[in-house]
């Protein structure tokens, strides 16, 4: 079976500074995969490389077997990969409803249509309502996204990411800055919404990582030093030394 995401020997340099060194990563279809590592290890850069936000200096990235390194983000998105952002990245002046609806439009085949009334597309309407219901924001659908609370914006961020129905979902620190209760709620949400899809998640909260992930990869200085099940990672001496220390015991 082809992997959902296959990263082969990817390198990324900004000028003389090499951020990613010989990155190899394989995420199986339907797997929930967490990427952990200390600050500055290149986790977000890895996300940016896979989602097409930046291009690798060398190496190859495949999505469901197809080479996607070198493609633009929207081309990768159309091939079934959707990502969220660490810093909330929504359409601030548009309502919550419109935010989600925009994310539904391409996937439902309406593309750049300028001859259809956007309010008269039953499938779009139904899917948007479903997503809003899923992320518990139905009661806020008429509020401009910029006026939401931080936790609500994070939920909307997830909603926009999953709205297009992509089969590979990448979430960049979805619970960053959330309270304990909010985090629990968000994790339950992520678990439910990514059911049957492939999930790649960057997360600092170890309880989230070990509670959610089927497999974990540890990234240190732009290189993956270990990849395995949560138990394997817990027991890996290299990981303990490089990053986790006593934290996982």
């Amino acid at each position: 079976m082809t992997a959902a995401i296959q990263v082969n020997a990817v390198e990324k340099s900004f000028g003389n500074v090499q951020i990613i060194r010989d990155l190899n990563l394989s995420v199986a279809k339907g797997e929930r995969h967490a990427i952990i590592g200390p600050n500055g290890a290149g986790k977000s850069t890895t996300f940016n490389l896979i989602s097409g936000y930046i291009k690798p200096t060398s190496g190859e990235i495949r999505l469901n077997g197809e080479v996607t390194s070198g493609l633009r983000p929207f081309e990768i998105n159309r091939r079934g990969l959707s990502r969220s952002f660490q810093v909330t990245n929504v359409f601030a002046r548009m309502t919550v409803w419109e935010n989600v609806r925009c994310a539904v439009l391409w996937a439902t085949g309406h593309r750049y249509a300028f001859w259809k009334n956007v309010d008269n597309l039953p499938e779009v309407k139904q899917r948007t309502a479903q997503i809003l219901d899923d992320i518990h924001l139905s009661h806020r659908s008429d509020v401009p996204a910029g006026l939401l609370t931080y936790a609500e914006q994070r939920e909307l961020e997830i909603g926009i990411t999953i709205a297009g129905g992509a089969n590979v979902i990448m979430l960049d620190e979805p619970t960053a800055g959330m309270s304990h209760a909010e985090t629990e709620r968000a994790v339950a949400l992520i678990r439910r919404l990514t059911e049957g899809r492939t999930l790649v998640i960057v997360e600092h909260d170890m309880s989230v990582v070990f509670g959610l992930a089927d497999r974990i990869s540890v990234l240190v200085y732009g290189h993956i030093i270990a990849s395995g099940t949560p138990e394997e990672i817990r027991g890996n001496p290299k990981v303990k030394e490089a990053y986790l220390g006593e934290e996982v015991d």
């Binding site: 929207f74 998105n77 959707s82 929504v90 359409f91 601030a92 925009c102 439009l105 391409w106 709205a163």
Partner: peptide, 10 residues
Amino acid sequence: DNPERVEFIG
């Protein structure tokens, strides 16, 4: 509002 994010919704 956000041309960057538009690229990630197709």
